[in-house]
Each structure stands twice: as structure tokens, then as C-alpha cells.
Simulated scan of single mutants.
Amino acid sequence: MGIVRPHLWFDDQAVEAARFYAEVIPNTTIQSVVTAPPGTPGVVEGAEFFVELTLDGMPATFLNGGPAFALDEAFSFVLDCEDQAEVDHFWETLTADGGRPSQCGWLVDKFGVSWQVTPAQLEDVMSRPDPEGVARAMAAMLTMTKLDVEGLERAYRGE
């Protein structure tokens, strides 16, 4: 394992988010939940404080730190999907219950975490040798919320 890992600050939903991701994202498990020691600023003593988890095989830490900082779209996880069916599944799951779509395959889930839900076909289309086709596919992508593989292919072909 590497020495760099994400550390996300939540108001008070770190454990709930970790449990949700453990259900939704393959290869995700919670290792431990640590409660707040006395004197922790902005957190009640004994409340769930740190969550150590493995998110799709990557170590991560979630913190319940109160409302001082908020997650935003400047940081996002990229969720690589095999095909449109997988994009649709993760899109629906992560936007449910208060999540919201953004642009170009990005969304914000109910915890405020930003995700880029990308099909494998996106990289294929964007790396093809026809620059005009790639430009058309890029222009089409910029108009999408959830990415549409067939729409990208049609744009690439000029249809």
C-alpha cells in the first residue's frame, strides 16, 4: 500500500457514509470506528469520531468534525464503470435520498461527497485518432449529466 490516503471531513455523518459505501462500492470495508476523547473541539465526548475504512481497496479516513468545513466538488472520487448498466446502477444509487446530479458524469451524493461516474468507453472514445470525432464527443459530454455511452459514440460518428 502507498502512504497517501484520502481523509474526508464530515459534519456528523462519517460512520453513516462509511456504512453506505461498504454496501454500495465493491471491495469496501470498515476497519474501525474511534470515539471522541474528552476535550475534542466541536465533538461530544464518546461520539463516533474517526472511521478507518478501505474504499475499493484504498485506505481512507472519515472524520466527524462538526460544521467548520464542508465537502465540495473540488475533491471527487472517480468511479470507473465497465459499461452503461454499471454507470446507471451507481448513478441511481449515489443520487438517491438527497444526492444530486452535476455535469459531465459528476454527482454529489447525500453525504456531500462528489463522484465522477465514468464508463470505460469514455477513455476509448477520447483517445481515438480522429480529432474531429473526439471534439464532437467532448462537446456532447459537456451537455450531459449522467454519461451516455451511446450518445458519446453517436457524437463521435457525427450522427
Rank of each mutant, 00 (worst) to 15 (best):
residue 65 G to W: 01
residue 65 G to K: 04
residue 108 V to T: 06
residue 13 Q to P: 06
residue 47 A to P: 07
residue 82 E to G: 15
residue 9 W to Q: 01
residue 39 G to R: 11
residue 151 G to R: 00
residue 56 D to Q: 11
residue 64 N to E: 05
residue 5 R to C: 10
residue 37 P to V: 08
residue 49 F to I: 10
residue 66 G to A: 09
residue 46 G to I: 14
residue 2 G to R: 02
residue 54 T to S: 11
residue 13 Q to N: 14
residue 30 I to D: 00
residue 97 D to F: 03
residue 19 R to L: 13
residue 88 D to L: 10
residue 128 R to E: 13
residue 56 D to A: 06
residue 117 V to E: 03
residue 153 E to M: 11
residue 73 E to T: 08
residue 110 K to C: 11
residue 44 V to F: 05
residue 158 G to Q: 04
residue 135 A to H: 04
residue 97 D to S: 00
residue 5 R to T: 14
residue 37 P to D: 15
residue 79 L to A: 14
residue 5 R to I: 14
residue 150 E to N: 06
residue 117 V to R: 01
residue 131 P to L: 12
residue 46 G to A: 10
residue 107 L to A: 15
residue 79 L to I: 13
residue 108 V to M: 00
residue 57 G to V: 02
residue 52 E to V: 01
residue 122 L to H: 14
residue 33 V to G: 04
residue 156 Y to I: 03
residue 53 L to C: 15
residue 129 P to T: 06
residue 136 R to I: 00
residue 82 E to M: 02
residue 4 V to A: 00
residue 122 L to S: 10
residue 126 M to E: 01
residue 34 V to R: 10
residue 12 D to S: 15
residue 121 Q to C: 11
residue 150 E to C: 00
residue 90 F to E: 06
residue 62 F to P: 06
residue 58 M to K: 05
residue 66 G to P: 09
residue 134 V to R: 00
residue 88 D to G: 05
residue 62 F to T: 12
residue 157 R to Y: 01
residue 78 V to A: 12
residue 153 E to N: 12
residue 42 G to W: 01
residue 111 F to Q: 12
residue 61 T to P: 02
residue 11 D to Y: 07
residue 72 D to R: 11
residue 96 A to F: 09
residue 49 F to P: 11
residue 102 S to L: 15
residue 119 P to Q: 05
residue 113 V to G: 03
residue 36 A to M: 08
residue 142 L to D: 01
residue 18 A to Q: 06
residue 75 F to A: 14
residue 76 S to D: 09
residue 8 L to A: 10
residue 35 T to V: 14
residue 38 P to W: 01
residue 130 D to P: 00
residue 156 Y to K: 01
residue 137 A to Y: 02
residue 154 R to H: 01
residue 24 V to N: 09
residue 119 P to T: 03
residue 106 W to D: 12
residue 36 A to Y: 10
residue 23 E to K: 09
residue 50 F to N: 07
residue 28 T to R: 10
residue 56 D to V: 09
residue 40 T to S: 03
residue 72 D to K: 04
residue 144 M to H: 04
residue 10 F to M: 08
residue 66 G to M: 09
residue 120 A to M: 08
residue 31 Q to L: 02
residue 20 F to Y: 14
residue 105 G to P: 06
residue 50 F to V: 03
residue 73 E to F: 00
residue 146 K to M: 15
residue 105 G to Y: 07
residue 109 D to F: 13
residue 108 V to I: 15
residue 81 C to K: 04
residue 151 G to W: 01
residue 116 Q to I: 05
residue 150 E to L: 01
residue 145 T to G: 05
